[in-house]
């Protein structure tokens, strides 16, 4: 019984270690620090881009400007999540990227319907 338990534990550890090795992937290439530095630069650029989109969202003269900057903001978030995927070498974050893209698209469509019906509702 004891031997069985220890074997199961060893198997679990083996599979867990194998999974971690698969998540780590290949042997680390010598270019990996360069890539990670570029990813940090990209995160900074994405955050600056999100700030620019927020500026347009606050300032935008028309309602379409605000919706458009929200759409761009959603795509910047998708890019940031993909950068996180490359950095962590994990699979699970890309689901979040897809979900954010779908929500941004749906909100853009809903706001476009709202803007298109706005004039008809106020003065028919």
């Amino acid at each position: 019984m004891n031997a069985l338990c220890s074997t199961i534990l060893m198997l679990a550890q083996e599979t867990a270690g194998h999974g971690a090795a698969a998540a780590d992937g290949h042997v680390a290439s010598p270019l990996q620090p360069v890539l990670f530095f570029i990813l940090e630069l990209g995160a900074i650029l994405a955050i600056v881009g999100m700030m620019l989109c927020l500026y347009r969202m606050v300032k935008g003269p028309h309602l379409a400007d605000r919706v458009l900057s929200g759409d761009t903001l959603a795509y910047q978030v998708v890019g940031l999540v993909i950068l996180l995927t490359v950095r962590m070498e994990s699979t699970t974050y890309l689901d979040g990227a897809l979900v954010v893209a779908i929500i941004g698209f749906a909100s853009t469509l809903a706001f476009a319907q709202y803007i298109g019906n706005l004039k008809r509702q106020t003065n028919p």
Binding site: L35, I38, L39, L41, G42, L45, A46, V48, G49, M50, L52, C53, Y55, R56, L68, S69, T72, Y75, Q76, G79, L83, V86
Partner: peptide, 17 residues
């Protein structure tokens, strides 16, 4: 590809402003 993607993302944000 990461450099190209970052460039286009940032250019899009600048264009929005």
């Amino acid at each position: 590809f990461a450099l190209a993607g970052m460039f286009f993302m940032f250019v899009g944000a600048i264009g929005v402003v």
